[in-house]
Design a protein around this nucleic acid. Sequence first.
DNA 1: GATGAATGAGTATTCATTCAT
DNA 2: AATGAATGAATACTCATTCAT
Lengths: 217, 217, 217, 217
Amino acid sequence: MNPTDLPVPHKRERRKQDRPGELLDAALDLFVEKGFAATRVEEVAARAGVSKGTLFLYFPSKEDLFKAVVRENVVHPVTQGAGEMAHFKGTSGELLEWMMLQWWHRYGATKASGISKLIMSEATNFPELAAFYRQEVIEPGQALVRTVLQRAIAQGEFRPVDVELALHSVMAPLLFLVMWKHSMGPCCPVSEQIKPEQFITQHAQLLVRGLSLPQTP
Amino acid sequence: MNPTDLPVPHKRERRKQDRPGELLDAALDLFVEKGFAATRVEEVAARAGVSKGTLFLYFPSKEDLFKAVVRENVVHPVTQGAGEMAHFKGTSGELLEWMMLQWWHRYGATKASGISKLIMSEATNFPELAAFYRQEVIEPGQALVRTVLQRAIAQGEFRPVDVELALHSVMAPLLFLVMWKHSMGPCCPVSEQIKPEQFITQHAQLLVRGLSLPQTP
Amino acid sequence: MNPTDLPVPHKRERRKQDRPGELLDAALDLFVEKGFAATRVEEVAARAGVSKGTLFLYFPSKEDLFKAVVRENVVHPVTQGAGEMAHFKGTSGELLEWMMLQWWHRYGATKASGISKLIMSEATNFPELAAFYRQEVIEPGQALVRTVLQRAIAQGEFRPVDVELALHSVMAPLLFLVMWKHSMGPCCPVSEQIKPEQFITQHAQLLVRGLSLPQTP
Amino acid sequence: MNPTDLPVPHKRERRKQDRPGELLDAALDLFVEKGFAATRVEEVAARAGVSKGTLFLYFPSKEDLFKAVVRENVVHPVTQGAGEMAHFKGTSGELLEWMMLQWWHRYGATKASGISKLIMSEATNFPELAAFYRQEVIEPGQALVRTVLQRAIAQGEFRPVDVELALHSVMAPLLFLVMWKHSMGPCCPVSEQIKPEQFITQHAQLLVRGLSLPQTP
DNA sequence: GATGAATGAGTATTCATTCAT
DNA sequence: AATGAATGAATACTCATTCAT
């Protein structure tokens, strides 16, 4: 019995259907590592185990492949967590820390986070993609954080700081971590690697402490 | 009368001495904007107002031009301010904020900051340059911040947090600002631009508050 | 009915296998005619009936093409004839004449002899090729001639001349003929062309007569 | 007193007047070594101790420089010796050997002999120069040898061989020696160098013996 | 005359894209 | 659908030639 109740395709068939996915995976790796221009489509095809010609069967051009890679891997990590967030029990400060760690585990630590590096690196060459990314990823993320901060301020948990600026104090370290991971990170000796969870945890706690009202004993 | 009392070089001579600088300027702009691979040497030459051949008179290859651009523009903004730092009057918290703002004015806000974006984007293609950048820019900056944090903790001004992690809470927003400025920034509507000084100021104050010992009334 | 009983390859396949050979042929012609530097790869490709890009599919660089041309066309005309030589019936003098004519027919008169001109012309630019040629062509040829001369002397057929010098009296005219054919030859009016077989025949006879012991009546 | 009775120019002046000569010398060396296309005018100028611009003051183009090099160095070695030849005492055989050795000492052994190699190598690229060379060098040389051979035959000293073919038996080894010296020679270990005078001497003697009538005791 | 900085036409080489099989 | 041979536009780099100083 097949526990998922899904039809099991023949191996051959499945592979065929996965072709675009395998190509996108290979392309993600290479685009992140080398950038758009320095990546050769032949290398992408080779890594996906198909011929150059096959790639063009699925993607009409290198640029289209690039756009597909971005659109495919741009997930909505914070938004996905939005539902769970509703059930979160704890202070706003704890929520903020939890959100940042969630973002790291769901996105920052995954291969998909290479997209952020890619977008940053190629933004001026692909402004539409940059705009797309802002709209689909940055804005929703900011909206979520904004809500948390505004509520915390309204509830007297946080001081009435400039929320739009505080937003960036939350997101900058996350984007920084991702950029670092995909650029300088591979060049650093192991001993000097940044430890993401620990950094996020301490950063969140510093921020929360900085945002909190002074304790009135 | 020549007011500067300096010998006036002939037009040809003066231009000759200026060539490398003009080319490096043009190349910085284009490399930052389009990345290494997508920048054509002819375009660099044209922007510097010379022909393709002239560029190769001063730089033996495109890669050498790239390296020269990096080495030329990698300044040591924090280190430069190290002397003045010694005379700073104020708390460690004020010093930290002052340092971050100085860094922005001396480097982040200038064209040279494009180097940081460039390095991050091309790090995996030019690992030697990435290592060079870490050694010449990141490390000295971190050392400076480390000193300040350690002293503040020793003096009982800051809580005994993990200094290596706190370092990144200081530097991440700065590098983030620079990346943003050279990537997403140009794609954003004016209304949504990040205001660097205000962000840095608030971020510094949040951090300092988060690092400070609780007030003992 | 396929008279050869061989599978008939598709047009594309057949052409593919022929490509390297066609390119080498075209390159031989042009390199011999114009030298290495003055030959454009595009011209080679055009003469082989393919595009510039195709050439680089088979040879990674112009220099590699050049080396392949040399290695491909360096045949061992004298050595090839070594087997037949064993069965030769006649005097050493007749053998010498026969060898020289054989060399001409098997090599000197063919397109491949352009290689000798090429090597001589480009020897200082490609010393490895010159060494290769000496080792693969010159040395074996000299060895063969040396053997014949030494045996003839040992058998009292030839006078005891300096064999190493006599070697060159045999080979110089042959190499001269080849050089001439590919350089001055095409510039000469037909009436002044050197007639290779006649020249070789007379030269061989002069040499043999010069080498022979005086007739003892 | 100046023994030559020529005005002694100032050093500066003399150098100026020698400029073309120094350039031609430098160019000869380089053209012979690398061929026409692979020789850079800048290198020629540098070797002559002047700037690239100065070269073009004296020679309107690289091709003109090449032609000047050829015309300047094409001497008439055999013809020059023609006068002395008239006073030669000895047999035709001795004369032939003497002529060949003279040619070597006056031309083959000198730097100017590089011209022969150059002409052979570049003949198809510069047919006018090849024709010029044939007319100015080859033909007169052949004419001289032809005269000697014809006379020797007429006088019953030599057998009535085909003079036009015998010509080449005289000249081929000489041209071969020159080609070798400037191409394969530099690539050969010292132990395998051809010794020109000894080779010429033995070759001449073989030829003369081959040409001579059988001794009638 | 002499210089050497500047030029730009020319060439090797790369690589996205096409298409016959 | 899949292949990979073929293409040719694009681009880094060279070098003979010019010309202002």
